[in-house]
Structure formats: C-alpha cells, structure tokens
Nucleic acid binder design. Sequence first.
RNA 1: CGGGGCGUGGCGCAGCCUGGUUAGCGCGCUUGCUUCGGGAGCAAGAAGUCGGAGGUUCAAAUCCUCUCGCCCCGACCA
Length: 520
Amino acid sequence: MRLSGMLLHTTREVPADAEVISHQLMLRAGMIRQVAAGIYMILPMGYKVLKKVENIIREEMDRAGAQEMLMPALNPAELWIESGRWNVYGKELIRLKDRRGRDFCLGPTHEEMFTDLIRKEIRSYRSLPLNLYQIQTKFRDEYRPRFGIMRGREFLMKDAYSFDTDDEGADASYKSMYEAYTLIFKRCGLRFRAVEADSGPIGGSVSNEFMVLAESGEDEIVHCVACDYASNVTKAETLEVDYPAGEQSRPMEKVHTPEMKTVDEVCRFLKVTSKELVKTMIYLADDTPLAVLVRGDHMVNEAKLLNFSGAQELKMADSAAIQKITGGPEGFSGPVGLEGIKVIADLAVKGLKNFVTGANENDYHLLSVNIGRDFEVHDFQDLRLLEADDPCPRCGSTLTIEKGIEVGHVFKLGTKYSQALKATFQDAQGEEKLIIMGCYGIGVGRSMAAAIEQNHDEDGIIWPMPIAPYHVYILPVSMKDGEVLSAAEDIYSACIEAGLEAIIDDRDERAGVKFKDADL
RNA sequence: CGGGGCGUGGCGCAGCCUGGUUAGCGCGCUUGCUUCGGGAGCAAGAAGUCGGAGGUUCAAAUCCUCUCGCCCCGACCA
C-alpha cells in the first residue's frame, strides 16, 4: 500500500471524548471514527487489523470443526417471543416494525435463529453433532456505550453454537471451543486468563469467560496463587467464616442511635467494627420480598442472590416498601421481629455472635443479637461478593484480584433453547430427544482494542505481529534524494513480490512527520 | 434510568459570569517561497446556522425556558 493514496488522517492531539488508551490511539491513528454514541466507522487502517483478527478466529474455528455461515441481523419477533426473551431482554434489544407493522428486532445474539435452523434441518442423531458459527454485526442498545469500540451498540461478534445428542458430546464440544479460544487469543498476542463466570441472561449451567488482563477492564477477576482457581468476582464462591469459639451470648439490648443510618455511622457511634454488624437488605425478587443478611463489611452479590431466588428480576426495595415490610424506616432494618418475609443470610453470618442490627424502628439499633435466640434464619447461602482477603474456595490459599476485559465467553446451554423452541432429534432407538446446546462468543473489535490496551507505548500502538496491519514499513526519509527514493521503491517492490504486506510512506512529508505516523 | 459535565470551522480550546459592530487562538487543510534524518519557518488563503427551537432586549455565542446530542460516575454483557 502506498500511504499517499490511503485514506488516513492521524492527529497530534488526543480527542477530548476518549478516555481509555486504546480508544485514544485508534482515533489518533485514524482507524475509527465515531458516528454516534457506541457507533463507529471502521476506516481502512482499522479494518485491516479487524480482518486479521477475524481471520485468526476463522482459522481456529474451522480447525476445530465448526462451519461458518451467516444469519440475518434482522430477526422476526416470533422467534424471540417463542423463547421468552422478547420480554426478558428489555431495552437492550433494538426493536422495529416493518411497513406492515410486523415486529422485528436487530439480533443482539443468535441462539433463537440457530436453534430455529437446527429444529427445521435436523431429524436424526446421525446428523449430529454440529457446530455452526458466524462473524456478524450485533446490536445492543447498551445503557452506557463507552471506551470506543470496546463497548459499542453495534459491534462485530463471532458467535458459535454447538448441537449434540448427549451431555458427553456437549462437554466435548465445549472443551474443543475452550481450546480453540485459547489458541485464538494466544495468536492475537493477548495475555489473558480463562475464568469461571456467571451465565447471566444467556442461561445455561457452566460458563467460562476469557479475560484480557488490563487496568481499563470493567470486570474484576480473582485467581488463586496456589491452585488454578480463577473466577469472575461476580461468580467467585465464598465460604463460611470461622469465628473464635466459646464466645458467650449476651442479652440483647436496644440502643438509641439518632440519625445513624449507614454502617459507617453506626459503627463509629457504637464503637464497633463493621465485622460485628449485620446489614439487613430488603430485596424484591419478582415482587416477593426477601430479607438478606450480610456482615457489615461485606457486599451482597446480586447475581448469586438472583440465581438463588430463581426470580426473573431482582431489585432493592425502596423506602416506602421497607417501611411497609419492616415497620421501620430505611437504614434501621433488622431481622428481629420480622414477619411474613423469608430471611436468608450469607454464610459469613452463620457463626457470628452478639452482633449489631437495626431495630426496625427509627433511630434505634439492637446490640448482642444472636441467631436462633432472637430470630430465625430460613436459609444460609453464599450470597456475598468475594473480598481480596478471602481465602481460595478450593484450596484455602491467598487470592489476587485483577481487572480484565471480557473478550470471549463460552456457555454450556443444555436444553434451555432446544426446549423453548422444541429442537429435537430421534436417537438410535427412535426416541425423540432434546438437542444439547452450547454457545460461544468472541468480541472481534473488543479483542482488537484489548490488544492495544496491552501493547502500546507513549508514541503509539505496538501491534502483535499476527494482527499488525502491515509487516514492513518503508520510510524514505527524503523524497528529493533520488537514490534514497529508488532504493525505497526497490525494497517496496521486492516486498510485494515476496508476498509481504508492505506499506511505503511515499508522501512528500518531512521525515519527522513520517516517523510519528509510523509509530502510531 | 439516577447523578455530574460539555456542545463555538475537520480536531483541541478561549470568549459567556458582567449582552454591544468584522466571533478569536493553536493544530490540520489550500497556495507560494525557504526548509528537510523525529510532528519546520514565513507569507497569503479557504472554512463557523456558536447543537436546535422559542423567549427577554434597540441589540444574544453570552440572559431565561424547552429540547436534542455527546462524555464521565453507578446496576449488565462479546
């Protein structure tokens, strides 16, 4: 490629809207251009890289036996209504009507489409297993698009779906995708970690995320220094906590705590640590109230709570609801004397004695509260967010927490979609059975951005070779010096001849300008 | 959606508080001359509905109201 003929504008100044380094550098290097929030044009230099990432993905998917195809982005609503996700997906789903008023959406993911294809195509176990994938534009109306191409409303994704006759087959498909992903991200020059993850609204039982380690990451991941345990913190398990034995129960006592609502205020006022206090949070799980107890220094993990409750939606009760349920104002809730509500407690609360709680009465708290004597807990569950000083749930060693960018996610879906859409096959005995599914996604543009996050210096991007837009950069320092120029041209021709991806900066610019652009 | 901030040539900003004639500056762009091994100098030039609508006023980028867009901080996802 000759730079003189390329659509490429680099900038000296950092665009004001760009926060993270990959976004800044992509803009400065003239690879992308914003159209609207979370919507970008991919310019020639950027597309060059994106296609390389795509091709690496394609090669490894094909090697793993998956078949590429292409689904429409425009999905009729019927399929989504049938799977139940037309309602569940919420505002993130971009919906539209055609000229006759028929409902459609722009696909944010394609479980429905692929399952629909398979239920129509597949009758016999003889046609299985299958693994189909596509690299296609997805649409999600994100609450908050940000970080450039990293979280867009329109983005390129590779999504694959596996279809098996039994669990063993599904496990094998999952494993082969897991391995393919490992190869893909290695080839993209990324430093990453595969972690256990919550499967969220996609559903299914088991899932792993592939996390690129970077400070700008939106996720926190935890891993054990001793064993190979690694997990997203939203999924990470926490254990029961051992408290010193032999502490005697003291009589419960009500104390005046004027205007003391937060854990910090109460602790300071009563001169106790947050570990000696139990927070009572009132949640509404699909309108069923739940009282959730966690230690004062802990945070409720809403993903765990949601899974435990089995509800579709979980939200914290507002102050009016709290007043109604507990009889006291927000900030003074406690488990003692609560009626008509299920009380569940985090495992760390189980062995705790003589703790502080709200009294369900304005400006009062209770001291020396004890489970079993003062109130009953209906269920003890792992309900909290893991903290940095928690031990590894597998081996008890120390954990470290890092930030990561989720570039890939693999799920074992089981029969969630095959059941909803009735995708069945006949086994060798002629019996009708549900197909076992898995699904596997990679954010293509996100992987590209993640590569920049990890590989750059103060002057620009340092592409890992496999995804570099060009491999040879020829920079004639002078366009006036005929000797330099013809030598440069000779090298360029030789590179092209040899099949190398070369770029020559044949613009009549000063050397400094060219060097700066080359760095970017 | 809640909270905060910003919309002024392609990009980065000043001007607004305290209304006043031709709306400035830097980068980039065009032309010429001089330069030329790490973002050159001089000169000339093109380019702006001051996000939009309404209002106040003799007069609005500036004050008021509404509206749209964008960015940042919190719950989700590739």
